[in-house]
């Protein structure tokens, strides 16, 4: 067996383990938290009282306008200066949730706005209150509109979690870095890490297109035909 293949095989275990224990949970928790935060932020911007709208806009502005890596550094290395010391994983998680929340709030906001106002009126006309109209009429339609951009964000997030390596989270990419430090084989190890990310995001893309095909049902309501 050639040397590079042996090396890849030997490091596959540690890399997958790091992926399973850190990358996957970080991705899932960040996305779930980001979705909730994004949804609340979108609601605040669309329906909130003026001060809340301002706060939401400010938050989105900051977190979309600055690099994710800088945000992670601020939380992990910066906050201790004001007495807030976080472990690496929670620090990264908070950073990702805030970042994902800012982006998904825009997706959710535009999806909700894309549902015609007549749908609100139709809901009100049969006696629904705001909550019922939102839950039964608007969100199911907005959800279908938001699925493609949200899955894109999710796939991007899987790859972005590699940035957590920079704040000492021992996730997949950091595991690769550690092995490089002892083997001095950056090319081989980083190619291997890249391949694992590639497999992950390809699998997710496949799932995404399946999901979109399924949601395209309902008499072509989401489908291509107008």
């Amino acid at each position: 067996m050639p040397h590079w293949m042996q090396l890849m095989l030997d490091s596959l275990g540690p890399l997958l383990w790091a992926g399973l224990v850190f990358t996957v949970p970080l991705t899932l928790l960040s996305f779930a938290g980001g979705l909730v935060l994004g949804y609340l932020t979108a609601l605040a911007r669309l329906f909130g009282p003026r001060p809340l709208v301002a706060i939401a806009r400010f938050y989105v502005w900051i977190f979309r306008g600055t690099p994710l890596l800088v945000q992670l550094f601020l939380i992990f290395y910066g906050l201790p200066s004001v007495g807030i010391v976080l472990d690496a994983f929670p620090a990264a998680l908070i950073g990702f949730i805030l970042n994902v929340g800012a982006y998904t709030s825009e997706i959710v906001r535009s999806a909700i706005s894309a549902v015609p106002s007549g749908q609100w009126e139709a809901s009100y006309s049969i006696g629904m209150n705001w909550r019922q109209a939102m839950a039964r009429t608007i969100l199911p339609q907005a959800g279908r509109i938001a699925v493609p951009p949200l899955s894109n964000s999710f796939i991007a997030l899987v790859k972005d979690t590699s940035l957590a390596a920079a704040v000492t989270v021992p996730e997949l990419f950091q595991a690769a870095q550690r092995i490089v430090a002892t083997t001095y084989e950056p090319l081989i190890l980083y190619i291997e890490a890249a391949l694992i990310y590639l497999v992950l995001s390809s699998a997710l893309s496949l799932l995404q297109s399946r999901l979109e095909t399924r949601l395209g049902g309902y008499g072509g309501f989401l489908g291509e035909k107008a």
């Binding site: 015609p116 009126e121 006309s125 049969i126 199911p140 339609q141 309902y218 008499g219 309501f221």
Partner: peptide
Amino acid sequence: RQQTGMVFQNFQLFPH
């Protein structure tokens, strides 16, 4: 509103 019903020019059925 529960005592009224409305029919709209462009139907506004729930597409889902």
